[in-house]
Amino acid sequence: MEQKEMMTMSDFSYRLTRTLDAPVAAVWQAWTDEKQYEQWSYSAPGSVHQDVRPGGAWTTTVVDPAGNRHDIKGSYLEVEPERLLVMDMATPTGSTVMKLELTDKGAGTEAVLSQDCASAEERDMAEQGSTMLLDSLTAFLAAS
């Protein structure tokens, strides 16, 4: 069962909601285990490094559909296992904060991904990238 929804929080923010056919523990592992994250996140092989704790750093090199490589890095601001990840990340215009909230829905997990951005262009690009991530995560979990 998959559900998509977009709710605008402000002019330069987005919020995406998915109901995933996987338990919270599996979704959490997919997002926080380096080897699993690399498999579905469009990351270049060997580029994912995660220190999943408040203040811990994370890095990845994302390869977009055109083959362009984008180095992304940040840190974890809040970590509540199987419930919440709040991450900052460096962007060309400064930094931004992304939040992943997980809710156990019995047979599945509701995942809410939101981000505040500095401009409409940044928001649109980030929302498109996050939609691709959630699509890929959904496929990864279905195949697991």
Rank of each mutant, 00 (worst) to 15 (best):
P23Y: 12
P23W: 14
V24L: 11
V24M: 07
A25P: 10
A25G: 11
A25E: 15
A26Q: 13
A26E: 13
A26V: 04
V27G: 06
V27C: 04
W28V: 02
W28A: 08
Q29V: 14
A30M: 02
W31Y: 10
W31P: 01
T32M: 06
T32K: 05
T32C: 10
T32N: 04
D33N: 12
D33W: 00
E34S: 07
K35A: 11
K35H: 04
Q36P: 02
Y37S: 08
E38Q: 15
E38T: 05
Q39P: 01
S41F: 07
Y42C: 13
Y42S: 12
S43D: 11
S43V: 08
P45V: 15
P45Q: 14
G46W: 10
S47P: 01
S47C: 01
H49C: 14
Q50C: 03
V52K: 04
P54W: 14
G55P: 04
G56E: 00
G56I: 04
W58G: 04
T59P: 05
T59F: 14
T59D: 13
T60P: 03
T60D: 13
V62W: 03
V62G: 09
D64W: 05
D64V: 02
P65R: 03
P65D: 08
P65F: 00
A66V: 14
G67W: 08
N68L: 06
N68M: 10
N68Y: 14
R69F: 11
R69V: 04
R69T: 05
H70V: 00
D71Y: 13
I72H: 13
I72A: 09
I72S: 12
K73I: 11
G74E: 04
G74Q: 01
G74V: 09
G74Y: 00
G74P: 03
S75V: 10
S75D: 14
Y76T: 02
Y76C: 06
Y76G: 03
L77R: 09
L77E: 15
L77S: 06
E78I: 01
E78K: 07
E78A: 06
E78W: 00
E78Y: 00
V79H: 06
E80C: 07
E80F: 06
P81T: 05
R83T: 12
R83V: 11
R83L: 03
R83C: 09
L85T: 09
L85F: 07
L85D: 04
V86H: 01
M87V: 08
D88P: 02
T91M: 00
T91H: 02
P92V: 07
T93A: 10
T93R: 06
T93Q: 10
G94V: 08
G94P: 05
S95D: 15
T96I: 14
V97E: 12
M98A: 11
K99A: 09
L100N: 14
E101V: 03
E101Y: 03
L102F: 01
L102P: 00
T103L: 15
T103Q: 15
T103N: 13
D104C: 08
D104H: 10
D104V: 12
K105H: 09
K105V: 08
K105E: 13
G106L: 08
A107V: 05
G108H: 00
A111F: 13
